[in-house]
Every structure is written in C-alpha cells, then in structure tokens.
Design a protein around this nucleic acid. Structure first.
Lengths: 243, 243
DNA sequence: CAATAAATTATCAAAAAACGAGAATTTGAT
DNA sequence: ATCAAATTCTCGTTTTTTGATAATTTATTG
C-alpha cells in the first residue's frame, strides 16, 4: 500500500454501519501494523479528514464538509443544477424526487437532489450515494452518452456480457432522448431520465425524476418527460454559458 | 512535502476564486516539478478527489460528496442537529439563520445550517465554511467550553494577547449560559449562541441564531435566547442517548 | 487522414520517506 | 498518585517518491 491509497484504506472503513473506529480495530481491518496506522490516522486528523470521537475512537472529520461546500460553490453541474431541481420539482406538482447524477468511477453518483415537499418516496437516490452503473434510467441515460471506447472499457470491467445486453437499450435512449425504467433500482418506483451533457466542461450527466409506479398514468408520464426535456435544455444552456 | 500533505497542497489550490487548474498551473503554484504533480493528480483522480474538466483542467471530484453524505448519515452532531435546526427556525417565526458549529483545527466550521424560509440575511455562516476562532458569538461560545490547557494552546497560536482579551468574556458566557455579539462577523447582524457539549462523544459545539440587528428588540432577544437554550437542551439529550 | 502540438505517462538512479517492532511517554480515570 | 490504555518515539531496513528526460498518447487542424 502506498501514496493516497494508504489513507483511503483507512477512510473507507468509516461507513454507516460502523462510523467509529479505534486504531487497533482499523489495523486489524486493513491488516497493517498498529504503529503504522497510528501514524496514518495522525496525518488524517491533522488535515481534518478524521477527528477524535468517544475515547480512543475516531470519526470522519469536517474537512469533507469544507470540500463539499467548495463543490457546491464551484462545480458547474451542482451550482447550476441545484436551483433548477427546485424549480422542476415545483412544476411537477406531484410526489417525486428529482436527481442530477454523473459518472463516478465505475458507478454513478447523485450530485444533487430535491424532493417534492413532503414526498416520502423510499428512493435509493440521494446526494452522495454511489449507485449501480447498469441499472435504472438515471445510470443508463448517462451511459448512453459516453463515447464508444470509454463505454466499452467501463462495461467490460463491470460485467462481461453487459455490452451485448445494453447496447440496444442505449441506442434507443439516444434516439428517443429519454429513458424510463420500472423497479430496476427500487421496487414500486419508476425512473424517468434525460441526458445532460457539455463536452467543453467534460460533463455527461443525467437529470431524472423518480415517482411511484402506482400514481403514474400515461398522461402524467408524458408531462414529466416534457418537463425533464425542457429542464435539461435550460441546464445545458446554462452550462454552455459557463464554459 | 510528504504523505498526505503532498495531496492536500494540490487540493487546497481549488478555491471559489479558481476552481479549475491545469497540471502546469498547479506545479507552479505549489512549486513542485510538473512530472511529480502529474503523478499526484493521477492518484487524486483515481480516488475521486479530482476529476477531469475542460480540456486539461481538473476540478474537485465527487468523492467529497460521497464522504459528506457519510458525515450527514453518521456524525452525531449533524445527524441529530439538522432536524432540530429545522424545528428551531420554524419556531422562531422571524427572519434568521440557525447554525450548528464546531471546532475545526484553528478555526470554527459550520456543520449544519437552516434558513428561515425566504430570509435573505447576508450572513457569512454557511455549512462547510471555516470561520474565525475568536470573533462572533458562535465561536466564542465554543471556546468557552474548552478545557483550560486546550484553550490556551489554541489561543496562543492564534493571537499572542487573545487569552487576556477573551478570558473575561468567556467566563461570562460560562456563567450566563449564552453569548450575544453584534456586528463582530457581519455588519448589521447579531449572533446569539448557546453551548452544546457532550464529553463522551468529544463534542463541544455551539448552536446559534443570526438575525438582523435592526429587527431585534429586547423582547425578541429574550425569546430567542429561551428558544436556543431549550433547543440546545433537546440536542444534548439526544446526543446523550447516542453515546 | 496525416501532421502537429499539447498533455500525459513511463523510465530510472538518487534521495527521501514509510515501515514496523518494541521502548518510552502521555493521557485519562480512578 | 496509580494504573492501564492510548499514543508517540526510535531507528535500522525496506520501500516509495522524486524529478529530469524520453516516449507515448490524445486532440486538433489543415
């Protein structure tokens, strides 16, 4: 282990299931001598990525909150997209969650979200949560925009026969301009997504709405697609202005 | 330069003023050979802390969004405090910003905030923004809770004669249980803060309200102090339940 | 599609830092 | 003050990082 990965192997231990670690616990988990982990943890604490918690335990530190703010302030997709999600959800006037997502390594991450006021949809999509690459309208719509070589490499790593399974569907998304999937990510929920891209800023993302399958009729579906397309258009324009 | 600081010297370049960097620019800014910075940037990109942007430029990466989510899900102060801020602001029924802040190295950082619906207060306090250690009710209230030795060391690094200037004021906060400052951070704004602490979780924080000086009369001030004290009490109880 | 410029990665020997086992020290709770 | 646990320190050894340069890849433009 070396360089950054030495630190990440520690940071990645901090999960929702176990958010508090002692040094000996960390040492055992990542199979590294305690004296080394003490040194690593000391550096992480010094930089604010970890902080002391209950005696001898550590938790994630506020540096992440600081850098997250910097992203909210400077990332074009987040900065331009967040207010737009608010408007979109208001126009929808129906329980839903709006999501702006982008590629994140070999997964997709939600970079901004907005819930319709009071909507209690049990959706997996929430800001900062990595999601599967090949399931759901949000992810597939992102994949549909990737250049061939990049897509191929990505899918090869994910799943040997993914390219074959997906290529038809991705072509359909490119043709139709949107993607609708039912229950692929969360049972009983429908995802409707449209592409958002800006080559200059190296952004290929998707804008999507998640609604309950039960409350979605054809008429509403058509309306949501139209709203999404128009919102994505505004977003793309705003991004072009930034570039 | 070595270890983590090598990576941080790159990440700290990404600011609101300049959020996009090329490798040669970074190399010049931190005075390190380009070939070294290329390697450093590559590692940061691989871990998601940077991502490619406009041709040959880089911006902060989504890993920060991911870790920030983990903090929102697991940090006791943020997790318990956020819903409480919402309730507090609703009860205030007056333009204000509620802030939950904690110590962050030699500064104070806002870990959660909530604006009264539609309030346009031009306050500096916002989630993730580091603030000065010795100015404003929010910071002073945190300082007032620190053990003597820690406080001394902290103030010595900040300002040679800070201990003398502040000790009286901090004692007063400990006695009264709250702190009110006018225009110390933002002109025309008043900060009202109460301590939030839990020794078991190693939390010493403050809960505060920022309101416009012009709209604050004595009667309102008393009400806000009472609301804060009661909210802080609820928060402390909830934290004790977690510990 | 070739030509060109720019960005990025690879190479490799010298220099520096990390490693890890154990000792020494600090810290925190009685 | 005492004790146990946590943390830092020490230091020879091993491993990585470093940085100048060369090689390669990538993107652009005629």
């Amino acid at each position: 282990m070396s360089g950054l990965s030495r630190f990440l192997s520690v940071l990645r231990c901090f999960t929702e299931a176990k958010a508090n670690w002692t040094v000996p616990e960390l040492a055992e988990a990542i199979v590294v001598p305690a004296s080394t982990v003490y040194r690593t943890v000391r550096e992480l604490v010094a930089q604010g990525f970890l902080e002391p918690s209950t005696e001898a335990h550590y938790r994630l530190g506020s540096a992440f909150i600081e850098f997250d703010r910097m992203i909210r302030l400077t990332d074009p997709l987040v900065k331009v997209g967040s207010p737009l999600l608010r408007d979109l959800v208001a126009e929808v006037r129906h329980p839903c969650v709006a999501v702006l997502a982008r590629l994140y390594g070999d997964r997709v991450i939600c970079a901004a979200d907005e819930r319709y006021d009071g909507a209690e949809l049990p959706t997996s999509y929430e800001r900062g949560r990595p999601m599967p690459l090949t399931r759901g309208a949000t992810s597939k719509t992102i994949l549909s925009q990737l250049p061939g070589r990049r897509l191929k490499r990505l899918l090869a790593d994910a799943d040997a026969d993914a390219p074959a399974k997906l290529s038809g569907e991705l072509a359909a998304i490119r043709k139709r301009g949107h993607c609708i999937t039912r229950g692929e990510v969360d049972k009983g929920l429908v995802g409707i997504a449209v592409p958002v891209s800006n080559a200059e800023l190296a952004i290929s993302a998707s804008l999507s709405l998640v609604v309950s399958d039960a409350t979605l009729d054809e008429r509403l579906e058509r309306r949501l697609v139209l709203l999404l397309v128009s919102a994505a258009d505004l977003l793309s324009q705003a991004l072009r202005r930034l570039a």
